[in-house]
Amino acid sequence: MAGGWRQRRAGALLRAGLAALLCALHVQAACQDVTITQELLKEGFHRDLLLKVELGVVGKDTGGCTVAARTHLPPGIYVDPYELASLQQQNLTKAVLLPDVIDVEAPEYLATDVLVLLYMEADPGCSSCFRAALPVHGRYHQPAEDSEKALVVLKNPEVLVCCCDSGLSAECWKPAEVEAPCSGKTSGSCQWYSIPHKPVYEESILEVPVGLRQHSSLVCVVTLLVTVLCSSLIVAAVCKYGHFSLMSP
């Protein structure tokens, strides 16, 4: 009797341990099966930031959820709020900027970081993939001593999920403080969760052309000469082709 009871107890403990192990492995797989890819397309100052997220195991249960990427743009990169508003009117992208007022004319050394919450759309070619694109622009930098390029490092974004409609949750998700609605259709905010992910690349680097300090005098002289020449041509054209009339008092 005692031996059979011990065997049944040992069997129950073994089954409970296996169930806990399988549950832990499932949660671990769900936490580790999220990958994100970040790319900077085009060349020069005006680029497109392309983000791709593959949820993998998590993606099978995210029906009714909204996926977004929260990224910090360093001072060397900015988003034009007027361009973004035009794209949102055309339903080409959806994003929230913090702060929402950005000085697009400020140089890099006078600018501040910008926080962007970029809503992602489902990828038709992949059932558990999401993607989004955002136009970004490089700022002017101060002249350098010995390099004609300044490097702007863009870290990988944070993957966020909001499941206000489905109520889905996972043990590996952490609540995130985000004051933004789940989608463009809702006005109120809801609870967002941060998902651990594995980046394909650690970071993206934007190369911005800059001038050299030793060329400052030459640039100033040439600029002054061109300004004087253009002003003289304008004055000569006005004197030659302009019509003047003297008004009697």
Rank of each mutant, 00 (worst) to 15 (best):
G3Y: 07
W5E: 12
Q7Y: 08
R8E: 08
R8S: 04
A12R: 15
L18M: 01
L21I: 00
A24S: 04
L25Y: 00
H26N: 01
Q28R: 13
Q32F: 05
D33G: 15
T35D: 02
I36D: 14
L41F: 03
G44I: 04
D48R: 15
L49R: 04
L49V: 06
K52R: 14
K60T: 04
D61T: 04
V67F: 03
V67S: 01
V67K: 00
R70S: 14
L73Y: 13
P74C: 15
G76W: 09
Y78A: 03
P81E: 09
E83R: 04
A85W: 15
Q90H: 03
K94H: 14
A95G: 13
P99N: 00
D100C: 05
D100S: 15
V101N: 13
V101P: 02
D103T: 05
A111F: 02
T112V: 13
T112G: 04
D113N: 12
L117Y: 08
L117M: 01
M120G: 03
D123Q: 07
C129G: 06
A132Q: 09
L134M: 09
L134E: 00
L134T: 00
V136M: 10
G138T: 04
G138C: 08
R139L: 08
Q142G: 05
Q142C: 11
S147A: 08
K149P: 00
K149G: 01
V152A: 08
K155T: 11
V159Q: 07
V159H: 02
L160T: 06
S169K: 02
C172Q: 12
W173F: 10
W173V: 01
A176R: 09
P181Q: 00
S183T: 14
G188H: 14
P196A: 07
K198M: 09
K198Y: 10
P199S: 10
V200T: 12
E202R: 11
I205L: 10
E207R: 12
V210E: 09
G211T: 15
S216T: 12
L218W: 05
V219S: 04
V221S: 06
V222A: 14
L225N: 03
L225A: 12
L225Y: 11
T227I: 05
V228W: 02
V228E: 01
L229V: 06
C230I: 08
C230S: 09
L233G: 03
V238T: 13
Y241F: 11
F244L: 15
